[in-house]
């Protein structure tokens, strides 16, 4: 590590008291931000300062701080998870910002993700999409030996490429249409790659797509902005897969 570098940053943070309340930007300045801090640690420091001044801290979601749980959800300088590709907000470090920079922070915005408070939103719509069909119906104890069905390595690797979705919702947040197609497509693609998923293949894609619609997500216009902001780099081909699966399900 190089010697400690300190930068000054100006923050414009979205504050909103509750779901119905009117939101606004509040400005803060942090004079000495260690560039080795993570972005969320920088917010921790700000919150500590606010509380020392007996003010209300900024609410934001986070848990693992390792880029795997999908809790963190900040739109930083206009981009979900901020400027670094393949990096969740919790893994973003302050060294990627300039001294004196103004950083704006907004919540995910979508009808299907209502704001709870400040930067915290409700993403239960994703659970409901999964519940509509994002599983293989196998009751506990009903499984054959794990090696009973061989699965080719390329198929299994490709399933894994789609399975790594962390469910953060950045795809929705970044999409100009607020579409949840990448999220849904990733699960459909994973399960359609695997023989275990075959029996429910048709039912699954139709149910999940219907649910997506019911939740109020927009259509996909193939902007591929979702792929660009996805912290685990899921390809837009997930969406293409979902569509072919859908056609096969309807016609076949």
């Amino acid at each position: 590590m190089s010697s400690t570098d300190l930068i000054k940053v100006h923050l414009k943070v979205w504050r909103q008291d509750g779901p119905q309340a009117k939101g606004f930007f509040e400005d803060y300045t942090l004079d000495e931000v260690n560039t080795h801090m993570s972005f969320l640690e920088m917010l921790d420091v700000l919150n500590e300062r606010l509380m020392k001044d007996k003010k209300e801290p900024i609410e934001f979601d986070h848990d693992c701080r390792e880029g795997i749980c999908g809790s963190c959800n900040l739109v930083i300088n206009g981009v979900p998870h901020g400027p670094e590709m393949l990096t969740a907000a919790c893994q973003l470090h302050m060294r990627h910002f300039k001294d004196g920079e103004t950083i704006t922070i907004e919540p995910w915005r979508a009808t299907a993700f209502p704001i709870i408070k400040d930067l915290v939103v409700d993403r239960n719509a994703f659970d409901r999409i999964m519940s509509a069909g994002g599983y293989i119906s196998v009751s506990t104890g009903n499984a054959p030996d794990a090696n009973a069905i061989p699965i080719s390595k390329p198929d299994s690797d490709s399933a894994m490429d789609y399975a790594v979705c962390i469910g953060c919702g950045a795809c929705v947040a970044a999409c100009p249409n607020s579409s949840a197609s990448l999220f849904t497509g990733a699960k459909v693609s994973q399960l359609s790659r695997l023989p275990q998923g075959a029996p429910e293949r048709k039912k699954r894609v139709i149910a999940m797509v219907d649910q997506m619609e019911k939740e109020g997500f927009g259509d996909c216009s193939n902007f591929a902005e979702c792929e660009a902001v996805c912290p685990v780099g899921i390809s837009i081909t997930a969406i293409a897969n979902m569509r072919t699966e859908y056609v096969k399900a309807v016609l076949g």
């Binding site: 981009v79 970044a174 660009a228």
Partner: peptide, 8 residues
């Protein structure tokens, strides 16, 4: 836009 693979 994040750029990269984005087609926006």
């Amino acid at each position: 836009s994040q750029g990269g693979p984005s087609k926006q």
